[in-house]
């Protein structure tokens, strides 16, 4: 069940993108799962083989041939019917407007949603839940995790 998740982590581990906790979890799983261990060996071998490949530059003649073929492959512009050209303008306008909207939303000086305070009990509960989630991972038993999930601490 968990193997798919760990398989996704193998390349991340090679590239140093996993946290120490994730690395530990992965190593522990690899020790227990021969299938993933084999997969890990394959990934390592592939990575090593790829890194070991010599870097070669293509001869100038081949580069020119490739450039020429790319030029040829560019299809001639089709003749667009007049009604399609008319329809194109608003469509392009919509795309530009959507892009502008998206850009605006992503800008740091976009308006910040006005802050409200929820009911006192509500907001304090949310802060409490966050605090419990913070510590649950450091609990040596699963009970806090389970109780937080099922609302004991509500």
């Amino acid at each position: 069940m968990k193997c798919t998740r760990y398989e996704r982590w193998l390349w991340d581990e090679l590239e140093g993108r996993l946290s120490a906790v994730q690395t530990q979890e992965l190593r522990s799983h690899l020790q227990a799962c021969p299938r993933c261990q084999r997969q890990w060996e394959v990934v390592q071998a592939t990575h090593q083989a790829l890194r070991g490949l010599p870097r070669r530059h293509a001869p100038e003649r081949i580069r020119q041939q490739v450039r020429a073929q790319i030029q040829q492959a560019r299809a001639p512009k089709p003749v667009v019917a007049w009604w399609k050209r008319v329809a194109l303008a608003p469509a392009l306008g919509l795309i530009v407007a959507a892009a502008w909207w998206g850009w605006l939303a992503s800008q740091s000086d976009a308006p910040l949603p006005p802050e409200v305070s929820t009911t006192q009990q509500h907001s304090e509960n949310w802060v409490e839940i966050h605090e419990q989630l913070e510590v649950a991972d450091w609990s040596p038993t699963p009970t806090p995790n389970y109780f937080i999930t099922t609302g004991y601490t509500r």
């Binding site: 409200v116 305070s117 929820t118 009911t119 006192q120 907001s123 304090e124 802060v127 605090e131």
Partner: peptide
């Protein structure tokens, strides 16, 4: 709506 009275 009220402001939360206390938070860490």
């Amino acid at each position: 709506f009220q402001r939360p009275s206390k938070r860490p």
